Measured scan of single mutants.
Amino acid sequence: EESQDIKALQKELEQFAKLLKQKRITLGYTQADVGLTLGVLFGKVFSQTTICRFEALQLSFKNMCKLRPLLQKWVEEAD
């Protein structure tokens, strides 16, 4: 059922947002740094506010889903 899928996805997004924040802090990056690095990787800079709202799960579900693969890549590249 679709609502189950969405619930599962939301849970996954929550966990990912936590992971992103932990990783960012561990590596000593600011939210603005992450936004700028996305610009380098994908040619589209994201504001500190956007990263902040992603981490706080304050973006729309659709936006969270759109941003996630980009931030996933950041997490992979950041090591």
Rank of each mutant, 00 (worst) to 15 (best):
E55T: 01
S47Q: 09
T37P: 02
L36S: 13
K23P: 00
G39T: 03
L27A: 02
A8E: 11
A32V: 01
K62V: 08
Q72P: 05
E76W: 05
D79Y: 04
K73N: 05
A17T: 14
N63H: 09
L13Q: 02
K23V: 00
E76V: 05
E76D: 12
A56R: 04
E14F: 11
Y29D: 05
T50P: 02
C52A: 15
Q10E: 06
F46D: 14
L41Y: 07
W74E: 10
A56M: 14
K62S: 12
K11P: 14
E76T: 07
G39P: 07
E55S: 05
G35V: 01
F16V: 01
M64E: 01
K23N: 00
K18Q: 12
K18V: 04
E55L: 00
V40I: 12
V45R: 12
A17G: 13
E76M: 12
M64V: 02
F54Q: 00
G28K: 03
M64D: 01
K21E: 00
A32T: 11
G39W: 01
F16I: 01
L38C: 11
A78I: 15
L38R: 04
V75K: 11
S3K: 08
F46R: 05
V45Q: 12
G35W: 01
L70V: 05
K62I: 08
L70W: 05
E12V: 11
I51K: 11
E1S: 03
K21M: 02
E76L: 06
Q10N: 10
E1R: 13
A56N: 13
F61I: 14
L70T: 07
D33F: 05
K66Q: 11
L59N: 13
L71Q: 02
F61S: 04
E12G: 06
L20G: 01
K62C: 04
C65N: 06
E77T: 10
P69Y: 02
G28L: 01
L57P: 12
G43C: 04
T26I: 07
R24Q: 05
A17C: 15
K11L: 09
Q4H: 11
C65V: 09
S60Q: 05
W74R: 01
E77L: 10
N63A: 12
P69N: 12
S60D: 14
W74T: 11
L59W: 05
A78S: 10
K23A: 03
L38S: 06
K7I: 05
L71W: 07
I6V: 01
L59E: 13
Q10G: 08
N63V: 07
Q72T: 06
L41N: 04
D33G: 07
D79N: 07
Q48G: 15
K18N: 06
L71I: 07
K44H: 09
R68W: 12
F42E: 04
D79E: 11
E77A: 10
F61Y: 10
K73P: 04
L27Y: 06
R24G: 00
K21L: 00
E77S: 06
L13V: 08
N63K: 14
V40R: 15
A32D: 00
T30C: 00
L9T: 09
I25H: 15
T30I: 01
L67M: 11
E55Y: 04
L67N: 15
T26F: 15
T37V: 02
V75M: 07
V45S: 12
S60M: 02
K66N: 14
K44T: 14
R53Q: 11
K73G: 06
R24K: 02
F42W: 09
L67S: 03
A78G: 07
A32C: 08
R53M: 03
N63T: 07
D33E: 10
P69K: 07
R68Y: 15
Q72C: 10
T30Y: 08
T26H: 08
C65I: 15
I6C: 05
G28E: 00
E76R: 07
G35T: 02
K11R: 08
L71H: 08
T49R: 12
L9G: 10
L9H: 08
L57K: 05
S47E: 08
E55N: 04
G28P: 00
Q15E: 13
K7A: 12
I51G: 08
R68L: 08
L59R: 03
L36R: 14
K66S: 12
R68Q: 06
C65K: 08
G35Q: 11
Q10V: 10
Y29M: 14
L67I: 08
A56D: 14
F42N: 09
A32F: 04
E55A: 10
S60F: 00
A32W: 02
F54M: 03
K18L: 10
E14V: 13
L36Q: 15
N63M: 10
K23G: 09
Q10A: 09
I51W: 02
L9C: 10
T49A: 12
K44W: 00
R53V: 00
V34R: 02
Q31R: 04
P69E: 02
K62Q: 12
L20T: 02
K7W: 09
Q4Y: 15
E14T: 06
K7S: 11
N63E: 14
D33H: 03
K66L: 13
L13E: 04
K18E: 05
G28M: 04
Q48D: 14
L13A: 03
T37S: 14
D33T: 00
L38Q: 04
Q4L: 11
E2K: 09
Q58G: 03
Q15F: 10
L36I: 15
K73W: 04
L9R: 12
V45F: 09
D5H: 10
K73Y: 03
Q48S: 14
K23Q: 08
A8R: 13
Q48K: 13
P69W: 00
L36H: 15
V34Q: 08
F42L: 04
S60T: 06
A32N: 09
E12C: 06
F54H: 06
Q31H: 10
N63Q: 08
E1A: 08
V45E: 14
L38P: 02
E1M: 15
L59I: 09
T50Q: 05
W74S: 02
R24A: 00
T50H: 12
S60C: 05
C52G: 15
P69M: 02
E76A: 10
L59M: 11
M64Q: 01
Q72Y: 03
Q4E: 10
Q22G: 02
Q15L: 08
K7N: 12
L9Q: 13
A56K: 09
E77F: 15
E77P: 08
E77W: 14
L9E: 12
D5R: 11
A56Y: 03
I25V: 15
K7V: 10
E1W: 08
L67V: 06
L59V: 02
L19A: 04
D5G: 07
G28T: 01
L36P: 03
A17S: 04
L70H: 04
V40N: 12
E76G: 02
L59F: 07
E2T: 06
F61Q: 10
L71Y: 05
F42K: 08
T49W: 08
E14H: 11
Q58T: 10
V34Y: 03
V75F: 15
E76F: 09
D79I: 08
Q48E: 15
K73H: 06
L27E: 00
D33M: 04
R24L: 00
S60N: 01
T50W: 05
R68T: 05
V40W: 09
K62P: 11
T50S: 03
L41C: 01
F54S: 03
F61V: 12
S60P: 13
D79R: 09
V40Y: 08
I25G: 01
T26G: 13
